[in-house]
């Protein structure tokens, strides 16, 4: 395989590439959106009860361990889901549970107790403390979890091609079946570049939104 093969493939298949990318991004966006809607409130709720937090985090950890191909395969056998987008979405949302809940929980729990006391002493209500103190101060950790979720979801979404999603993973799947190396490599490169790009961009945003005094060196 040479560079010309690669460029030829890109030019010839630009339409398909666009279509697959669009499908990929809609799936990722939907999955991340739903995950945020569900898991952020759950994470915030868990900060109220340590007992439940331990239980739910253990469950999330266990789910996170399940290999992604296994997760898709198991969901496919459940009659209600079957092949297609529903199974893919559910699997991605379940995977996002661990990083999101954990980061929201850790972020809020890590806020200095004295700050909360001070806020309460100033007469802030619990709701205002949550919105104006806990979430902004926990933001660095929460955003780090968000970043991991997005990058991970992009990668796992490619595997959903095996259960009938027509996305960028399809190039890899078909390239392998037809031993079409340019196709396979193009698919792999596009996904890698998207994942690395998202990681880098979100990393830059992460640095921006963290107040200077809170920046941790890693």
């Amino acid at each position: 395989m040479t560079l010309t093969d690669f460029v030829n493939f890109l030019v010839k298949n630009s339409k398909t590439i666009m279509e697959y990318s669009e499908n990929h991004f809609t799936l990722v966006l939907l999955a991340v959106g739903i995950s945020l809607l569900i898991w952020v409130p759950v994470g915030l709720l868990l900060t109220k009860s340590d007992k439940w937090a331990a239980r739910v985090l253990a469950l999330a950890n266990t789910i996170f361990c399940i290999p992604s191909l296994s997760m898709f395969a198991i969901l496919v056998t459940i009659p209600m889901f079957g092949l297609g987008r529903k199974s893919a979405l559910l699997a991605l949302v379940l995977y996002a549970m661990m990083p999101l809940i954990r980061s929201v929980y850790d972020g809020v729990k890590n806020v200095d107790r004295n700050v909360i006391e001070a806020a309460r002493g100033m007469g802030m209500s619990t709701k205002r403390i949550l919105v104006e103190i806990l979430v902004p101060l926990g933001m660095p950790i929460i955003f780090a979890g968000f970043r991991i979720t997005v990058v991970m979801t992009t990668g796992i979404a490619a595997i959903a091609t095996y259960i009938g999603e027509r996305n960028l993973g399809r190039f890899i799947q078909e390239g392998l079946v037809r031993s079409n190396t340019p196709m396979m490599v193009t698919g792999a490169l596009i996904i890698s570049i998207i994942a690395i790009g998202l990681d880098t961009i979100l990393g830059m945003i992460e640095k921006r939104i963290v107040p200077k005094g809170l920046r941790v060196s890693r």
Partner: peptide, 18 residues
């Protein structure tokens, strides 16, 4: 290593083959 880690597993497998 961080960059390598961001590459999805299925892409690594696909790149390993050729």
């Amino acid at each position: 290593l961080n960059l390598l880690q961001a590459v999805p597993g299925i892409a690594v497998i696909a790149l390993a083959l050729p």
